[in-house]
Write a protein that binds this DNA or RNA. Sequence first.
DNA 1: GATAACGCTTAACCTTGGTTAAGAAATGAC
DNA 2: GTCATTTCTTAACCAAGGTTAAGCGTTATC
Lengths: 200, 200
Amino acid sequence: MSVIAKHINPKFQHLFQDRFCFTPNEYELLLSYMQFQHIHKKDFYLRPGEICRTKAYLNKGCTRNFVVDERGHERILFFAFEDWWLGDFDSYYTQKPGTNYVQAIEDCELLVISKENFAMLEERIPKLKQWYTYKVTRSASASLKRMEEIRTLTPKERYLNLIEQHPHIFQRIPLQYIASFLNIEPQSLSRMRKRLAEER
Amino acid sequence: MSVIAKHINPKFQHLFQDRFCFTPNEYELLLSYMQFQHIHKKDFYLRPGEICRTKAYLNKGCTRNFVVDERGHERILFFAFEDWWLGDFDSYYTQKPGTNYVQAIEDCELLVISKENFAMLEERIPKLKQWYTYKVTRSASASLKRMEEIRTLTPKERYLNLIEQHPHIFQRIPLQYIASFLNIEPQSLSRMRKRLAEER
DNA sequence: GATAACGCTTAACCTTGGTTAAGAAATGAC
DNA sequence: GTCATTTCTTAACCAAGGTTAAGCGTTATC
């Protein structure tokens, strides 16, 4: 077992092997190109202006991608939890300066790999490419769906949808961030929750 | 000159020849596969449920693409004016029943061509493909930009943007349709216009 | 354990857009 | 030209979210 493998959360190993059946050799190869990195709550993995040259497997913890709009408001694009990849994907693909903050909401364990090494490994481990493509596709369609929701639904409808479809978010994400995710002010979310509670 | 060429608006000829320099032969070939069609104000070129098997060059007039949402509200996706192509593009590419109404806002002159014939002509006239790709790309990015505006801007900001960027629309499109395009009720647009007028 | 910082809630006030209904103006049909 | 239809405007009322400001409870920090 590699030095890295010893440090990481067992869950990581589990996912890689269980869901995509990497062989022990593939698994070791993969890990040998990844740097283990710990970041604390509120630390940034990436800031606007930086070129995103690596991506990071989120092994433990959760993060938020957000931008700051013309009015100076933070706008949360999405949250990431265990078993997702972090980065500013626009910047990653274009290698131009990005626009996203990527910030830890909890203390996080990351496994970081450079774009070049990842590309190289994708060639050597076809399953890796499949797995990553699957992840990216899922997150892209979730993103689109969310944009569409913000465009067409009321804040209340978005809130109720979120409770129904991703109740676990409320266990780990502060309400102020959920408000931003829903595109409303924290006070408005608070008031809405009160109104909904009173309706029962 | 073909029979069709004699009937069409000179502007059509102008655009084809000027902007993309079709040769007279290419031009005649193109027209020989297109059916001239006149539709009246409020007539439909396409309705939801129909499979979009043709596309139509809008030679004169203007149209709107719209869908009816769950609440029974019409939602205008975009307007088309001279020198654009009409259709339900999702349905056109998938050949599944579509969701869009395509309706004439003014009396329209169309040049209709089947999907098969267009594909065939694209092979024989490379410039046609270039030209059409250019059109589609532009309209796709305009569409995205608009979705983004509805998501992030207030109705007032969207209205002011529209005046600034597409003032000509107000000369030809009834305000009720512009309201729908801006994602608000006609009464609200009317009130907003009044408020803005009073601010001066 | 006192103090500060943070996250969340509450309240009052304001603005804005939806809703309903009615009326005015413009357009179309005969 | 008259009548009907369509389009646009106005008004009153309501609901909902933004803004500002204050307070409260929990968590950190020393």
